[in-house]
């Protein structure tokens, strides 16, 4: 009994599965209502808006913040009643990488649903 043809086939199968499989772990952020700044504010909940300018800097209420400041502001806001809606407002030049960093930051602070908005104008 010769095992060589069996080994050939098994190697080919192995090669196929090695090349065709992917071990990348995907995940995703839900993107809540978007649009311009006026269009979505329909409910009464206050909005906590974190603005991202074109250089990637963070602003809350017009004040420049560091990332740890943002984490603190957001954590404090999560204990408020009524809880505000969290909005990330980004300039057109901000990269997706930076937006994901901020969504990451919010998610680590405990925000489950952050909306993404375009800076008007």
């Amino acid at each position: 009994m010769s095992l060589t043809p069996l080994i050939d086939v098994v190697f080919i199968l192995l090669l196929f599965f090695m090349l065709a499989s992917s071990f990348v772990e995907w995940s995703s952020f839900p993107l809540a209502a978007t649009g311009d700044r006026q269009s979505t504010a329909v409910d009464d909940a206050p909005q906590l808006i974190i603005a991202l300018d074109s250089s990637g800097g963070l602003r809350y209420d017009g004040i420049a913040l560091t990332e740890s400041d943002v984490r603190r502001v957001v954590s404090a806001a999560l204990h408020d009643r009524p809880r505000p809606r969290f909005v990330v407002r980004a300039d057109a030049e901000v990269t997706v990488r930076r937006i994901v960093e901020i969504l990451d930051l919010l998610s680590q602070a405990g925000v489950t649903d952050a909306a993404l908005q375009r800076t008007a104008g």
């Binding site: 995703s28 839900p30 990269t95 997706v96 969504l103």
Partner: peptide
């Protein structure tokens, strides 16, 4: 792509929402 600008992302999101009300998610590499 990580280098894409937010402006383009918003255009795409607006176009997706124009097709039908859909749940949109942004895929990341965990």
């Amino acid at each position: 792509d990580a280098q894409v600008g937010a402006g383009r992302l918003f255009e795409v999101m607006t176009a997706v929402q124009a097709s039908a009300p859909q749940a949109i998610e942004l895929v990341t590499h965990h």
